[in-house]
Amino acid sequence: MLIKSRKSYALTDNDVTDESVYLGRRELLKKMGFIGTGSLLAGALPLGSANAGVLDFFTDDDKKSASKLAALEYQKAAAEFTATDKLTPEDKVTHHNNFYEFGAQKSQPAEYARNFKVDPWYLKVDGQVNNNLLLDNDDLFKQFDLEERIYRLRCVEAWSMVIPWVGFPLASLLKKADPKSSAKYVAFETLYDPKRMPGQSNRFLGGGIDYPYVEGLRMDEAMHPLTMLAVGLYGKALPGQNGAPVRLVVPWKYGFKSIKSIVSIKLTTTEPPTTWNKLAPQEYGFYANVNPKVDHPRWSQASERRITTGGLFASNRIATLPFNGYADEVASLYKDMDLTRYY
């Protein structure tokens, strides 16, 4: 098996319940004919809490606005992309977010991104490529075969989730753009639009970091089969707070590498600047691989709080695994590197 599930984290009855409830819901949707038309819907409608305009009277109810997210049509990914850990429930995935563009507190993005409009959206791919690309909202959902992958997400703040993403490998997009041999790095940029992202215009809300948010990967990391662009989670289009309409997911790196609401992907010859590294270089490196042996200067990275169901007593501190449990697949990318230096 390519992706190992955590040994210290055996399956319990609960695990199965969580997923079966979720799958049951998918079955139901299928019967109702929703999933078949999913991609159509996804293409035709602005996605996300995004289309709030249409049903504005629902906007003060989060739950209802979440249910407006378009269902997607996708395949289940191969077992190697499907972690068997217990899933983090959907409402926790969508209500506990670090997305400072919509507020620096965990609960704020769900609130401030509720009316975030993602249509029109343009994602450009350029730089060291033979084919410049410009994808609109529609293309993101139609040009690629969508698949569901279950990944662990480890935040640098020492909490973690297990999330069923829907998306496609970043490599599929980059291959379309046909990278030149001079391309060594990939630079990503989040939308900069202070009117739509209140954290960008209000330093109190946005935590005073420099916008737009930028991130980067080395070319081999970007082309790695585990690296994906997600357009959905739990079978539906991404809600604004999770990075609608398209975000990066790099499961073996700390969460801040997985940049949200991307408008630009540029292939470069040199290592691009990255937001958290600029802010505090001694705390956040360019690589940011999950590494239990290299502590954050202010807290230990040796273990993490896994967020699943249940309250305080159910809280679960588990050992953090090298590369977040994906060492077999990615450790070779860094074999000659001193990971204490390139943290």
């Binding site: 209500h95 989730m161 249940g310 305080l312």
Partner: peptide, 18 residues
């Protein structure tokens, strides 16, 4: 606080919350 915490009423990360 503790009634909510034990009934899963404090959001995704009750530990941080308390």
């Amino acid at each position: 606080l503790y009634l909510s915490a034990f009934s899963d009423g404090l959001g995704a990360d009750p530990v941080q919350y308390v």
